[in-house]
Design a protein around this nucleic acid. Structure first.
Length: 126
DNA sequence: ATTCTAACA
DNA sequence: TGTTAGGA
């Protein structure tokens, strides 16, 4: 498939797909006309990349982790070097911090909402 | 129509 | 990341 289809099927802009390639996250084959050519495997791969990006991992880290993940949404290291393990532990801690940050803000918003709506009205007052 | 590269009101 | 120019 060409970039347009991959874009639609992954919800990722063509611009971003080219950017991921530029960052070494994905490698596309080229059609005789120069167009990028992707196989089915890339649909999941791109989704996996987006997931890690949303989790807060920088592309440079994803680049190292990517070769260790394939089929489903799992990450497995049979060749986990101590450097990679240390990196992942750091990322894990970063995720934990972001989760706590999000939780605090979500609760603050939830409390605000509960305070504003006297327990009945579901729409925000003008 | 679609995609490509490069570049930035 | 979006958008756009200029080309295939």
């Amino acid at each position: 498939m060409r970039i347009g289809e991959l874009s639609e099927r992954t919800g990722t802009s063509r611009r971003l797909l080219r950017y991921y390639e530029e960052q070494g996250l994905i490698v596309a084959d080229r059609l005789p006309n120069g167009y990028r050519d992707y196989d089915e495997r890339y649909v999941d791969r791109v989704r996996q990349i987006r997931g890690l990006l949303d989790a807060g991992l920088p592309t440079r880290i994803i680049k190292q982790v990517l070769p260790c993940l394939d089929k489903p949404r799992t990450i497995y290291f049979s060749d986990a070097t101590p450097e990679i393990l240390a990196t992942l532990e750091h990322e894990r801690d970063g995720m934990t911090e972001r989760i706590q940050f999000l939780t605090r803000n979500r609760d603050a918003i939830a409390d605000y909402l509960d305070a504003v709506r006297g327990g009945d009205r579901r729409d925000v007052p003008a």
